Simulated scan of single mutants.
Amino acid sequence: MSSEQSSNQKKSNQFNIIKDDPNDGHGGYGIGSISLENMSPVIIDPNDDRAFVDMGAMHGRSEVERRVKFQSDRDVVANGKLYWIVWVTVEKGEHGPYFSGVCGSEIVVDRSIKRAYKSMPEHVKHMEKSLKGKVMVEHMDDHSKKLLKDFLANFEGGEMWENASAELKDALPN
């Protein structure tokens, strides 16, 4: 792998950590808007036992969402593969950065018919809950939760996992 490919892979596997306040107290345009700068989507692929950050999911263009047409009826993709887009919010605390909000949203993809299912209201709700520091993973299957836990616990030495709440650690299996 070339150094350019390695560099690109590393950049795509990063979490967004809170940046300086873009408004800096000026009170002008954009005040009251929601910033997604500290949120990153983690794709859980239980079919291939992998988890990875894919920033394309912020705009519905993740690796698993590309080249399919979305349906609002889950029955259309009855033979599809299950994936999870987990909305992960990172905050800075007194001990450093930590995972504060973690909410999983399902997506089912059937590549053979180029169709997929996801509930946009569910994804938006889970993004909002994640931004508010909530943990919502109880609806995920155990294998997917384990993949998520392993990914978060091993991310860049595990500091953000160590600083995470007991609620998050209890929600994901050992």
Rank of each mutant, 00 (worst) to 15 (best):
E156G: 04
L82Q: 06
D141H: 05
R67P: 06
D73P: 11
E156Y: 10
P46Q: 12
I107G: 04
P173K: 00
A166Q: 15
N174T: 08
V102Q: 05
L36S: 06
D24R: 11
V108W: 06
V76Q: 10
V53M: 02
G80R: 00
K169C: 05
M39C: 08
A153C: 09
D110N: 14
E63C: 05
K169D: 11
H26S: 04
K125W: 07
F15E: 08
E94T: 11
Q71L: 09
E65R: 05
E106G: 07
N16Q: 09
K11C: 08
F99S: 00
E63H: 11
H126S: 00
M1T: 15
H123K: 01
E156N: 14
H123V: 03
T89G: 00
P46W: 05
A166V: 14
G32M: 09
G60D: 12
V88I: 02
L131W: 07
S3D: 14
G104C: 04
E156C: 09
N8A: 14
S112M: 08
G80H: 01
G60K: 08
D20R: 07
G30Y: 06
V90C: 00
S112D: 15
M140F: 04
N174I: 09
E167A: 10
A51G: 07
A116W: 02
Y83V: 06
M160K: 03
M1A: 13
Q5S: 13
N47A: 12
S6V: 11
S2N: 15
L82I: 09
R67W: 14
S40P: 07
E94S: 10
V68I: 15
K134V: 07
K19M: 09
A171E: 10
V109W: 00
G27K: 01
S105Y: 07
R111N: 14
E162N: 12
H95M: 02
P22C: 05
S35Q: 09
G60I: 09
S144D: 14
F70Y: 15
G28F: 03
A166E: 15
N23E: 03
I44L: 10
V86H: 00
D21K: 04
G101V: 04
Q9G: 06
D73R: 09
G25W: 01
M136E: 15
N8C: 09
G27A: 01
Q9N: 15
K69C: 12
Q5P: 05
Q14D: 01
V135S: 04
L36I: 14
S144G: 12
E159L: 12
N8M: 12
V102M: 02
S100G: 10
D150A: 09
K69F: 13
A51N: 08
A51C: 11
V64F: 02
I85C: 04
D110W: 00
A164P: 05
S35R: 06
R115Q: 13
K132C: 05
L148W: 02
M39W: 03
S3W: 11
K129E: 10
K19Q: 05
A171K: 03
A164K: 01
S100W: 10
Y83F: 11
E106L: 11
F70T: 10
E167V: 11
E63K: 13
G25F: 00
V135T: 14
G56P: 08
S100V: 06
V68T: 14
I107K: 01
P22R: 00
C103Q: 11
V68W: 09
G28Y: 02
I85E: 02
N163H: 13
